[in-house]
Design a protein around this nucleic acid. Structure first.
Lengths: 192, 192
DNA sequence: CTCAAAGACTAATAGCATTAGCTTTAAAGA
DNA sequence: TCTTTAAAGCTAATGCTATTAGTCTTTGAG
């Protein structure tokens, strides 16, 4: 078609790629298919993204930002720290369930060099650490935060990969295990 | 070469594929490269495996079995349950660090339909659940087990994906967070 | 002693990412 | 206003990939 006035933006390409991954799976994200979905020819996206890997990194950065936004939005109300942390955790899990494929892809190493900038996630980690510090004190707060992230991340991945098949309300289990974890840190003696 | 007497076994193919993934990365696992490493031509493995996806599933089953074996071996001695769970957790983490790429691949959904049979992992889960039940009672033991698996899995994935970059001895942090989690299920610590 | 089938091979195919080179058009500077 | 430059589309081509088809050699079962 008419060459110069850009028919697609980089943003449109990245967002469409994200949609294809989420709705049709990563293996359907080919440049043929992506370009067809955008109404252009296969090589044309190369004017906007360097290569497929960079495209995937852009998708992952977009996903990571959406996750951070969702979790921070859930942290807003000002009640006691455990309740806030629990709301953040539930928002985290809800996001992963709404975007299961892109969530997993965002944090996986399977596509090398496509992970988002860790600084992006710090925007989520630092407020959470402040809440955790209310339970554990400053000294232990980094460890406690890391475990909380690990617990949430591991739980939703096991769920999404169908590795928790023995029934039960997994939403309730998730809340129980997060609360148990936080309880374990609250119980620590102060010299920790 | 001489056609009939099999030059490679299915086992040899799967193991070599696993080695290539671990040593050179998943993207270097091509049938050309795999066959060359086995001293045969690219299409020959198709006499032993249906296709690449089935090969990956076989690799993942092998990895899962090795993980289960390593964790169960660590559970053998007969001391108190928390110490045994901690040894299992450390063996779990050690395995993931020894086989970072295959560990992640084994549990990821990025290669569809290549995950191992969940029954394999039950061989690890059931003994662990019995130990957890000593802390929590039968009723809560499934939830507590699931959280423990989630915590271990999530922690090692965050480590392997370089998502825990703020320093510190991550081995010690791992032990701390596992202990905090178990303490949370046991209830308040004795000094309270 | 034969013969069926296992398991190697070569050759071919279709799909993929990516590059090269051409063309049109808007905008920027003369 | 005119010219030029570069953005961004296109088609065509390349090399790598998994996979299939078909041929050939060996061996173990009957």
């Amino acid at each position: 078609m008419s060459p110069y006035p850009a028919q697609v933006s980089r943003e449109a390409i990245v967002e469409r790629a994200r949609e294809i991954i989420e709705n049709e799976g990563l293996e359907r994200l080919t440049l043929q298919h992506l370009a067809a979905a955008l109404g252009i020819q296969a090589p044309s996206p190369y004017h906007h993204v360097a290569n497929k890997r960079e495209l995937l990194r852009a998708v992952n950065e977009r996903s990571a930002q959406a996750l951070v936004d969702a979790v921070l939005a859930a942290a807003e109300a000002t009640d006691e720290p455990v309740a806030r942390l629990l709301r953040m955790a539930k928002a985290y899990r809800a996001f992963a369930h709404e975007h299961p494929i892109t969530y997993e892809l965002t944090f996986s190493n399977v596509e090398p060099n496509a992970r988002p900038d860790p600084a992006q996630l710090e925007a989520m980690a630092l407020p959470a650490q402040a809440l955790v510090a209310d339970l554990t004190g400053e000294a232990a707060s980094l460890s406690a935060l890391r475990g909380l992230l690990a617990l949430m991340h591991g739980f939703v991945l096991l769920e999404l990969n169908q590795q928790l098949r023995r029934g039960g309300d997994l939403g309730a289990v998730f809340e129980d295990v997060v609360q148990a974890y936080l309880r374990g840190w609250r119980g620590m003696p102060p010299e920790w």
